[in-house]
């Protein structure tokens, strides 16, 4: 799947960045970089090479958009906000799960082609677009926010801060992509993945939530499958400490609840994880 079908011979220009708008005509005069992009579906595909004129500040998503507008109008990629807020443009850049809108081309060696491939953990719909519907199915298994009937919603900024880290999640699914339980072992039937342990943490830390999701954590989410490699935390574009702050406390809670009567009692008494 690594046939290179497009090859141009334009030499990168020696003179830095041009001010002009990137169009096909400018390609010869501007600095160019080469991208190898996955083209195909879940069954058949290949890396195809494109030379893209580079302007200062360009991100990988800009390069993909340039290719769409100038060479391949059928090239499929998801995107929305183009400023790291919506989590749509998740891809793998040189194998690293990343948001294409937040990775500047200047971060990469201009002499080496940049490979852009779809998130490997999910089936490919087309090109850089994976089928992420499984994630939405997992989400539906989580008991939603459940306040007490007489909740007064009086709480303080320090309560907000405890929940905030988990509520920053933009659902880019990069953590799901990198998680080897899902990626290498394909345990989608057994393990909900980091994103949904972040969501349950966000609900748990809601000052007015009353639901007990421990059984979900143990049985549906399969929190025990995580073996704490912290890959998810490493790729999180929102810098959420997923493993340490979301997953490990839920592992401990499951252990307390199901496997350690003494700690269970202590935990129950303190009302804390």
């Amino acid at each position: 799947m690594s046939t290179e079908t497009t090859q141009t011979t334009d030499e990168p220009a020696a003179t830095g960045v041009e001010e002009s708008q990137a169009t096909a005509e400018d390609a010869v005069s501007a600095t160019t970089m080469t991208l190898e992009i996955y083209r195909g579906d879940d069954d058949v595909g290949e890396l195809v090479e494109y030379d893209v004129p580079v302007e200062e500040g360009m991100v990988v998503l800009d390069a993909i958009h340039w290719i769409q507008a100038n060479e391949e109008p059928e090239l499929a990629v998801r995107w929305n906000c183009k400023s790291g807020r919506c989590g749509s443009c998740s891809v793998e850049i040189d194998g690293m799960p990343s948001l294409a809108c937040m990775k500047r081309l200047s971060e990469y060696d201009p002499e080496t082609p940049i490979t852009v491939t779809p998130m490997a953990t999910f089936p490919v719909v087309k090109d850089l677009v994976p089928d992420v519907s499984w994630n939405y199915e997992v989400n539906e298994t989580i008991e939603p926010f459940s306040p007490a009937e007489d909740a007064d919603f009086e709480f303080y900024q320090e309560d907000v801060e405890r929940a905030r880290e988990f509520r920053k999640c933009i659902e880019c699914f990069l953590c799901q992509d990198v998680c080897h339980v899902l990626r290498e072992h394909d345990k989608k039937e057994s393990y909900a993945g980091p994103r949904y342990l972040v969501r349950s943490a966000g609900l748990h830390f809601h000052p007015e939530d009353t639901a007990d999701r421990t059984e979900w954590m143990k049985d549906d989410a399969g929190v025990g499958f995580c073996n704490i490699t912290r890959c998810c935390s490493d790729v999180c574009p929102e810098d959420i400490e997923i493993t340490d702050n979301a997953i490990i406390p839920q592992k401990e809670r499951v252990v307390d609840e199901y496997y350690d009567p003494l700690r269970r009692l202590r935990s129950w008494l303190s009302g804390l994880w």
């Binding site: 939603p144 926010f145 306040p147 909740a151 919603f153 009086e154 709480f155 303080y156 900024q157 309560d159 907000v160 929940a163 905030r164 509520r167 609900l203 809601h206 000052p207 939530d209």
Partner: peptide, 16 residues
């Protein structure tokens, strides 16, 4: 807020 949105707070514990 009743559906679960967590707004920043005032010192009195209300929505800032």
């Amino acid at each position: 807020q009743e559906w679960g949105a967590i707004f920043d707070r005032t010192e009195d514990g209300d929505i800032h």
